[in-house]
């Protein structure tokens, strides 16, 4: 076995370093919530101002694809939460399996989202050049613009999440992060993953289920 990781400079013991890591991630997530908060605000304002058009265009979104994606993300969050539990008990192989499966579900989500964009493009309902023949009201287009901005910003976050999960899995696989001493890397990555999941839980009804 490798020697235990040393405590880094400003810290006096490992518990302090662990707590600081968790707290740092939580504060970062608070700032992420405020970032998406601005977009949620914009969507809410448009929903108020152009209720009829928003509902009309929301009905055309593929809500069942969104529902499948919701299930994928919720399941992946469960796997990640289980990985945190296992990492505290140094169940290295279980952690690896759980992290990699969660990342796989994340990739499935992204694939499905890509398919959804593609089919919307085919139907003429995606507000990009060449894909909006069916969009014929300005507020409707604005709603779809916000749909595209918010879901793609979410997809960027999810991509970062997938990469983070795989990097952590790699560090555990190569034993550069020893368990359970460095379970903090699993915990912080999991916290980020949960946030990305929760943002989707809010985006889904806001965009797909406006009635």
């Amino acid at each position: 076995m490798r020697e235990l990781p040393k405590v880094q400079t400003p810290y006096v013991d490992r518990a302090q370093q662990h707590e600081a890591g968790i707290m740092g991630m939580h504060i970062f997530l608070a700032s992420e919530i405020m970032l998406f908060g601005g977009i949620f605000m914009a969507i809410a304002v448009i929903r108020q101002a152009h209720s009829q058009e928003v509902v009309e265009y929301s009905k055309e979104l593929h809500y069942y694809l969104g529902a499948i994606n919701t299930m994928l993300l919720l399941t992946s969050s469960f796997l990640v939460a289980a990985a945190v539990h296992m990492s505290r008990h140094a169940r290295r192989k279980a952690v690896l399996a759980l992290l990699v499966s969660a990342a796989f579900l994340g990739l499935l989500f992204l694939g499905l989202k890509g398919f959804e964009y593609w089919s919307e493009f085919q139907e003429g309902r995606l507000p990009v050049a060449g894909g909006m023949e069916k969009i014929n009201s300005a507020p409707g287009r604005l709603f779809l613009n916000l749909y595209l901005v918010s879901t793609s910003l979410h997809a960027v976050h999810l991509t970062i999440g997938v990469i983070a999960l795989l990097v952590v899995a790699g560090r555990i696989y190569t034993r550069r992060s020893a368990l359970p001493q460095r379970s903090v890397v699993v915990e912080t990555t999991a916290a980020y993953w949960h946030l990305v999941d929760i943002i989707w839980i809010f985006l889904y009804p806001l965009l797909y289920l406006a009635r």
Binding site: S31, E32, M34, L35, F36, G37, G38, I39, A42, I46, A138, R141, L142, N145, L146, V149
Partner: peptide, 21 residues
């Protein structure tokens, strides 16, 4: 600060892609 970030991003999207918000 993140609220400013997203607001400026919306301005940029407005200028570049005609977002409309």
């Amino acid at each position: 600060t993140p609220v400013l970030s997203v607001t400026l991003a919306l301005i940029a999207a407005e200028r570049l892609f005609g977002l409309g918000i």
